[in-house]
Simulated assay, not measured.
Amino acid sequence: MQGIKMKPFIKWAGGKTELLPVLEGNLPQQIRENKEIDTYIEPFVGAGAFFIYLASNYKFNKIIINDVNHKLINVYRVIKESYDELIKDLLCMREEYLSYSEEEKKEMYLRIRDEFNDWENTNKIKQAANFIFINKTCFNGLYRENKKGGYNVPWGKHQNPSIFDEEQLKNISRLLNLKNESGQDKVTILCGNYKDVDKYITQKTLVYMDPPYRPITESGFTAYNKGGFNDDSQVELANFFKQISDRGAYSMLSNSDPKNFDENDEFFDELYSDFNIDRVYASRMINSKGNGRGKVSEILVTNY
C-alpha cells in the first residue's frame, strides 16, 4: 500500500504523527535495505501512527500490534473484520448528531458514553463505533478511565465534527487485512500486557515501544486505563528493553523527558545508560490548557 497516505483514525495522548520523520530517521539501516528484519512489533500501539506509516511504506513478513486497552483493540479488530457494519453505524450516528441542537448533541454524547461504559451489554461493532464517536466529540480528544474502568471525559461542545473519514477507515481496514507471501494474515492484533509479545521477538525483529509517558509535571496524565503506569512500571519496562536487546532484537523506545520539568532529573538517563538516548522535539496538542501545548523534548532510546 505504498504511496497511500494514512493517518490515525482517533486522537490519542502522545500520538506520534508529528514525530514520524524523526522516528523514521532513527530506524536501523537494515530496514531500509530490506535485510535481517522481517517482523515489526508495537506493544503499545495506541492510535497507531508509526505502525500505519511503517506498514504502508516498508516490507515486513509479519506485524504484531498490541495494547492493554481492550476497548481500543476492539476498534482495530472491528475495522479489520467488520468494516461495512462499522461504517453503517458511524453514518447513522453522524447523521443523528448533526441534526441536533447543542443541548441535544450533549444529551446524545452522554447517552453514547453510558452505552460505551455498559461494555458487556452492547455488541462489539456498535462499541467500536461508540469509541470513535466519543473520541471525536469528547473534550479535547482525550481517553481517560476512572479506577473502575469507566470512560469519564465530558462532552467537548463540538458542533460540526467529521467524526470519521470513510476512505481513511477503508484504507486502514485494507492494511490490517494484508497477506504475506505465504498467504497468511500479515497483521496480528493482540490485547494484553506488553510482555505478551515476548514470544514473537527474535534477532529479525524491530520493536518500537511507546508506553504511557512518565509525567513531567506533578499533575501529569497517565490514566489511559484503570491500571496506571508508575515509576516501577517504567523500571520494569526498561528491564524488558534490556532483555530483548540481549536477544539481538532491534529496539526503539519513546518517553517523556523529565528534564523539561527538572534539569537534574536523571531518571531515564540512568535507566537507559547502556543505550543511545536522543532528545527530540514534538508539539503536544492534547492538553486541557492551551498554554500547555507546544514544543517539548522527548527521549528516544535505541539499542543500535
Rank of each mutant, 00 (worst) to 15 (best):
273 S>T: 14
144 R>Y: 06
45 V>Y: 02
257 D>P: 11
298 E>G: 02
96 E>L: 13
124 K>D: 13
160 N>T: 14
56 S>L: 07
282 A>K: 13
2 Q>Y: 14
278 D>W: 00
239 N>A: 07
191 C>T: 12
170 K>Y: 14
220 G>Y: 11
129 A>M: 08
284 R>Y: 09
296 V>G: 00
176 L>G: 03
297 S>D: 03
218 E>W: 12
143 Y>H: 11
91 L>M: 13
148 K>A: 13
74 N>S: 09
87 I>A: 03
116 F>G: 05
69 N>Q: 05
46 G>C: 01
180 N>R: 07
209 M>Y: 04
20 L>K: 03
219 S>V: 06
224 Y>K: 02
127 Q>R: 15
257 D>I: 06
241 F>Y: 15
187 V>K: 00
229 F>W: 08
83 Y>R: 07
269 D>A: 09
17 T>S: 15
113 R>K: 15
245 S>G: 08
123 N>Q: 07
127 Q>P: 00
145 E>A: 13
15 G>W: 00
156 G>V: 14
125 I>V: 15
236 E>D: 15
18 E>D: 09
131 F>K: 00
215 P>I: 12
175 L>E: 05
162 S>D: 14
82 S>H: 15
19 L>E: 05
258 P>C: 09
40 Y>C: 03
139 F>C: 10
161 P>V: 11
155 W>I: 06
278 D>S: 13
295 K>L: 11
87 I>F: 02
294 G>M: 03
165 D>H: 06
51 F>T: 07
252 M>W: 04
128 A>Y: 01
273 S>G: 03
144 R>M: 07
53 Y>W: 10
238 A>L: 07
119 W>Q: 04
213 Y>R: 13
73 I>A: 02
141 G>H: 01
2 Q>T: 08
1 M>R: 09
280 V>Q: 05
18 E>P: 01
249 A>E: 02
94 R>D: 07
200 Y>S: 08
283 S>V: 05
22 V>D: 13
248 G>Q: 04
7 K>I: 14
46 G>L: 01
175 L>S: 07
172 I>R: 00
295 K>V: 15
11 K>S: 15
119 W>G: 02
160 N>Q: 12
28 P>Y: 13
26 N>E: 09
193 N>K: 15
12 W>D: 08
140 N>G: 07
215 P>F: 11
59 K>M: 04
107 E>N: 14
83 Y>W: 11
283 S>T: 08
38 D>G: 02
98 L>A: 10
277 I>H: 10
292 G>T: 05
258 P>R: 09
215 P>C: 11
17 T>C: 02
214 R>A: 01
63 I>S: 01
271 L>F: 08
44 F>E: 01
1 M>L: 12
140 N>P: 06
58 Y>Q: 05
240 F>P: 03
92 C>W: 04
214 R>L: 11
275 F>S: 03
266 E>W: 12
221 F>A: 04
250 Y>T: 06
22 V>F: 10
63 I>R: 00
126 K>Q: 08
19 L>A: 15
65 I>R: 00
1 M>S: 14
215 P>E: 10
91 L>W: 06
